[in-house]
Lab assay of single mutants.
Amino acid sequence: MLDDRARMEAAKKEKVEQILAEFQLQEEDLKKVMRRMQKEMDRGLRLETHEEASVKMLPTYVRSTPEGSEVGDFLSLDLGGTNFRVMLVKVGEGEEGQWSVKTKHQMYSIPEDAMTGTAEMLFDYISECISDFLDKHQMKHKKLPLGFTFSFPVRHEDIDKGILLNWTKGFKASGAEGNNVVGLLRDAIKRRGDFEMDVVAMVNDTVATMISCYYEDHQCEVGMIVGTGCNACYMEEMQNVELVEGDEGRMCVNTEWGAFGDSGELDEFLLEYDRLVDESSANPGQQLYEKLIGGKYMGELVRLVLLRLVDENLLFHGEASEQLRTRGAFETRFVSQVESDTGDRKQIYNILSTLGLRPSTTDCDIVRRACESVSTRAAHMCSAGLAGVINRMRESRSEDVMRITVGVDGSVYKLHPSFKERFHASVRRLTPSCEITFIESEEGSGRGAALVSAVACKKACMLGQ
């Protein structure tokens, strides 16, 4: 009897593995994704193909990295998701002549009506938060230079001027797309009239992360975010950046690689679950690469896999709870928690219980395998993109072996128990001629924006502006 049951459990697990095998990517698959990513990057950089390229390769006008001589107080704003952060950054000489960066910050959550109302409502709310922060720190009387981390696709015309191309991540505030974001912020500050600010720089969160990590390690020339969304930036040779005049030196390019796949480059790798996630998203047909990796989508992918296993009578005796059938019910943090389970399955059992399920031991094991399959594919897909960037940098610099540091931020990278190990191992397999160091950014977005502002202020002083 026991043997029969054991055989049935083994057969069930084997069927589960057959279904989950769809998520496995072979090294040849990853090399294919990497080569296609490089081709799209090239198209994004070139003037004649930029418009139709899915990977936009947006110039950021960040050319210099901090040298350690900029000092002063800077205000930093960070808008990239449902939370908005205001930070005071003091850049100065530390002990023994070292450079020191001290920060104080406060988080504000953005109400739904500000995210989806008008641009005026959104930026009025942001300036209200700045006003509140300055009151708390008794700094209303000071006109501070301000660095703005704005983590949406922007076409820069200068370091302090950028046109919002399109909202992502659930934002829909009308009247912002096609307009200068810094102008919208300046107008809102003017409307309030109770404080003055000098907006000197606007950067993407990947750029802010790279600059913040450069402060720790001067070989950091790539910034990457794996959180709600997924994106990367890197220092490109100016001669390859056709959208900006000049051939000397390097400029940081914001790849906006989340949109890779929007022209069909990933079609052969998309599964039924991916198509369902895409169809029910706020932007169907867009940001397809990001939807395979980002935390906004990972939990939902797992939920759809679990429903398939229920329908195949391989999980929960073929019956799903009402909660499990509800879109968004299986949160991405559950994926991390399930994979963090120590082996007694308590954590998995508790999560499934909150979803109205009474799982068996085998159910718990199957749910864990589903989570591992989805998150491992995410790590491997992400590795193909980064390997594409790094191999490109090595080739354009004609280096036999390139040493490089990548600064990384984002909740999936930082909080998932195995993502970074799987990701690092896969990147290294795909970049055999590179020695890569990964560092995690601390308060990256805010500190990085302030350091970019410090560079901009120093330049302005040198130019006598």
Score class of each variant (00 low, 15 high):
431 T>G: 10
407 G>I: 07
285 G>H: 10
102 K>V: 06
377 R>K: 08
218 H>P: 03
256 E>T: 05
372 E>C: 08
194 D>C: 07
55 V>C: 09
66 P>V: 10
387 A>P: 01
32 K>P: 04
51 E>K: 05
297 Y>A: 06
363 D>Y: 03
151 S>C: 00
44 G>L: 04
307 L>Y: 05
87 M>E: 03
356 G>C: 04
310 V>E: 00
165 L>K: 01
166 N>V: 05
440 E>C: 13
179 N>H: 15
163 I>D: 01
186 R>F: 01
109 S>Y: 12
2 L>R: 07
352 L>A: 08
137 H>I: 15
256 E>P: 00
168 T>Y: 02
323 Q>Y: 12
26 Q>N: 15
46 R>I: 09
319 E>Y: 14
195 F>V: 12
166 N>E: 06
34 M>Q: 09
255 T>L: 07
383 S>H: 02
81 G>T: 03
164 L>K: 02
330 F>R: 09
435 E>A: 09
250 R>Y: 12
38 Q>A: 12
445 S>Q: 04
388 G>P: 06
86 V>K: 00
383 S>I: 02
343 G>N: 06
398 S>T: 09
465 Q>A: 15
399 E>C: 12
57 M>I: 02
247 D>F: 07
181 V>P: 01
159 I>V: 02
281 S>M: 08
131 S>C: 08
201 A>C: 11
355 L>D: 02
159 I>S: 02
167 W>A: 05
420 K>Q: 12
202 M>E: 01
254 N>W: 03
460 A>K: 15
407 G>P: 01
370 A>N: 00
416 H>I: 06
354 T>W: 11
198 D>A: 11
157 E>G: 03
369 R>M: 13
429 R>Y: 11
459 K>Q: 15
95 E>T: 09
150 F>T: 02
179 N>E: 09
65 T>A: 14
386 L>E: 05
242 E>T: 14
244 V>F: 07
36 R>E: 11
140 K>N: 02
262 D>W: 12
240 N>C: 06
212 S>Q: 09
264 G>T: 15
376 T>K: 08
459 K>H: 11
146 L>A: 06
215 Y>H: 15
438 F>K: 10
462 M>R: 15
18 Q>H: 14
350 N>A: 14
319 E>N: 11
69 S>T: 15
447 R>C: 08
442 E>Y: 15
24 Q>M: 12
196 E>D: 15
441 S>K: 04
88 L>T: 07
448 G>E: 04
291 K>L: 04
20 L>H: 05
303 R>K: 04
25 L>Q: 14
384 A>C: 13
148 F>M: 13
101 V>W: 13
410 G>W: 00
310 V>P: 07
54 S>E: 08
213 C>L: 08
207 V>S: 04
438 F>P: 02
333 R>E: 10
263 S>C: 12
127 S>R: 04
275 R>I: 14
299 G>A: 07
110 I>Y: 00
261 G>D: 06
363 D>R: 04
45 L>G: 01
142 K>V: 07
80 G>V: 02
294 G>T: 03
109 S>R: 06
158 D>C: 06
378 A>D: 00
390 I>H: 04
312 E>M: 14
434 C>I: 08
252 C>D: 00
296 K>R: 12
203 V>M: 00
270 L>K: 09
98 Q>K: 13
40 E>R: 04
340 S>H: 11
393 M>A: 06
409 D>S: 06
240 N>W: 12
383 S>L: 01
430 L>A: 06
32 K>I: 03
300 E>W: 04
171 F>E: 02
218 H>K: 09
243 L>D: 12
448 G>Q: 01
167 W>Y: 01
325 R>F: 14
162 G>Y: 01
410 G>E: 05
412 V>A: 04
247 D>W: 08
264 G>V: 06
85 R>T: 02
411 S>C: 04
459 K>G: 15
52 E>I: 12
338 V>H: 05
184 L>Y: 00
109 S>M: 04
34 M>D: 11
146 L>G: 01
232 A>C: 10
242 E>A: 06
374 V>W: 03
230 C>G: 05
255 T>G: 03
212 S>P: 12
358 R>Y: 06
77 L>F: 05
426 S>T: 10
286 Q>D: 15
101 V>H: 08
181 V>Q: 01
350 N>E: 09
58 L>C: 02
410 G>Y: 00
161 K>V: 15
227 G>F: 00
124 D>F: 01
86 V>M: 03
105 H>R: 08
203 V>L: 03
203 V>G: 01
347 Q>E: 11
94 G>N: 01
397 R>N: 09
411 S>T: 12
115 M>C: 05
327 R>Y: 14
166 N>Y: 13
239 Q>V: 14
204 N>L: 03
78 D>N: 05
230 C>H: 00
251 M>D: 13
77 L>H: 01
362 T>A: 10
460 A>D: 14
55 V>Q: 02
104 K>A: 08
181 V>F: 00
130 I>R: 01
22 E>V: 13
297 Y>G: 05
451 L>K: 07
160 D>Y: 03
103 T>K: 02
433 S>A: 08
272 E>K: 13
48 E>L: 07
29 D>W: 14
241 V>L: 14
216 E>P: 15
398 S>Y: 11
460 A>V: 15
172 K>F: 01
180 N>Q: 02
14 E>Y: 14
445 S>M: 00
80 G>N: 03
355 L>F: 11
185 L>Y: 06
109 S>A: 08
333 R>N: 15
160 D>P: 10
144 L>F: 07
14 E>P: 13
33 V>K: 02
88 L>W: 15
229 G>E: 00
14 E>K: 12
371 C>S: 08
464 G>A: 12
386 L>Y: 02
62 V>L: 15
202 M>L: 05
428 R>I: 10
123 F>A: 04
352 L>T: 13
403 R>M: 12
236 E>L: 04
336 S>L: 00
234 Y>L: 01
187 D>Y: 02
65 T>N: 15
445 S>T: 00
238 M>Q: 10
4 D>E: 02
137 H>K: 07
234 Y>I: 07
324 L>H: 05
215 Y>A: 12
249 G>Y: 09
299 G>L: 05
183 G>W: 00
386 L>I: 13
133 F>A: 00
459 K>W: 14
41 M>F: 10
27 E>M: 14
20 L>A: 11
170 G>L: 09
